[in-house]
Structures are given as structure tokens and as C-alpha cells.
């Protein structure tokens, strides 16, 4: 399925079924088994958005990818989950999957996601250009973001101190 980051379409080194793919994504309830299998393939996990991220706490340094599902675009739990995983120190790939929209892409990047995996139907309806434009629609954020934006509050302070 199409994979996008802030630069546009990317090849996906992970797959849920193809054993020849570089990395594998397993369901949440198959995670223990995959990590114990002794394989050298990078392991990612599909995290349903009703699972508290603390349940991944003991695996974070062994995970190459966490994919958080957006079952409906109006269901924003994934934004909190992403931020919480980053706050817990997770540094691997963070992917949003499901019904996410370009209109939410900037929020996803700000919350700590690196990429979105969408369906062919979404990709056909929502051209790459819309995803590429989304992170640039706003110059500023009032809060610090996980993708490195400094809050307006802090930038005002910096401007005052520079003056």
C-alpha cells in the first residue's frame, strides 16, 4: 500500500505478509512471538489505537517500527499515542495507517509520526501533492512539536531576548 513521508511517496521496506521484505510488521498479539523468534529481520508492530502505549514499554528498543491505526479519520487517539511513545523514548519509525487525511498530516508529523500508509483508494482520491503541501500550510505552531517546531510562545521570548 502507498507509503508517504513529508518528501512524498516512498518505497516500503516493511511488509505484513511478504517474507522477502526487509522488515516485517506483526499484529500486536503476535509481537512477543516475533521478537523471540531469533530472526534478524527488523520487527514492526501494528498497534490498535485502544492499546495503551505503556504496553510496548519493555520492547521499545527492539522495535523497528510502530504502526498506529486510524480506523476513522475523526478518531484522533493516534495523535496522543504517537506523542506518548516519543515521550517514552521510542526512536524508531512511527507510522500512521488507516483513514488519515492530508488535512491531518501536519498534526501527525507534529505528534511524532514519520510517515503514513494509506490505501490505494485514498491515494487515488488524495494525490501526493496534497500530502506534500499539508506540512507547509502553517508557518508556526503555538506548541512545541515533535518534528522540531518551537512554540510561538518560546519564539516570542527568543525575539524579546534578541532585541
Amino acid at each position: 500500500m502507498p507509503l508517504l513521508d513529508r518528501e512524498g511517496l516512498q518505497a516500503d521496506p516493511f511488509d505484513r505478509a511478504d517474507p522477502s521484505a526487509e522488515g516485517v510488521i506483526v499484529p500486536f498479539d503476535g509481537l512477543e512471538e516475533a521478537l523471540e523468534s531469533g530472526s534478524n529481520r527488523p520487527v514492526g508492530v501494528d498497534l490498535p489505537n485502544h492499546v495503551h502505549p505503556s504496553r510496548l514499554a519493555s520492547h521499545l528498543d527492539r522495535l523497528a517500527l510502530v504502526a498506529i491505526d486510524f480506523p476513522k479519520f475523526s478518531d484522533g487517539r493516534g495523535f496522543s499515542l504517537a506523542r506518548m511513545l516519543r515521550e517514552q523514548g521510542y526512536r524508531g519509525r512511527l507510522r500512521a495507517t488507516g483513514r488519515i487525511l492530508p488535512d491531518q498530516f501536519a498534526f501527525a508529523l507534529h505528534s511524532g509520526f514519520d510517515e503514513v500508509e494509506i490505501s490505494d483508494e485514498q491515494a487515488a482520491r488524495l494525490p501526493v501533492g496534497q500530502w506534500q503541501l499539508a506540512p507547509h500550510q502553517f508557518s508556526d505552531n503555538y506548541v512545541d512539536t515533535r518534528d522540531g517546531r518551537v512554540s510561538v510562545f518560546k519564539r516570542r521570548r527568543a525575539a524579546r531576548e534578541a532585541a
Binding site: 495523535f79 498534526f107 505552531n141
Partner: peptide, 13 residues
């Protein structure tokens, strides 16, 4: 108001 405006985490409650 400012903090909550387009808050990345809390716009789809």
C-alpha cells in the same frame, strides 16, 4: 485560546 488553536494532539477528540 492560543495553546488550543490547531493543537496537533487535541483536534480530533
Amino acid at each position: 485560546r492560543q495553546w488550543s488553536t490547531l493543537h496537533p494532539e487535541f483536534s480530533f477528540l
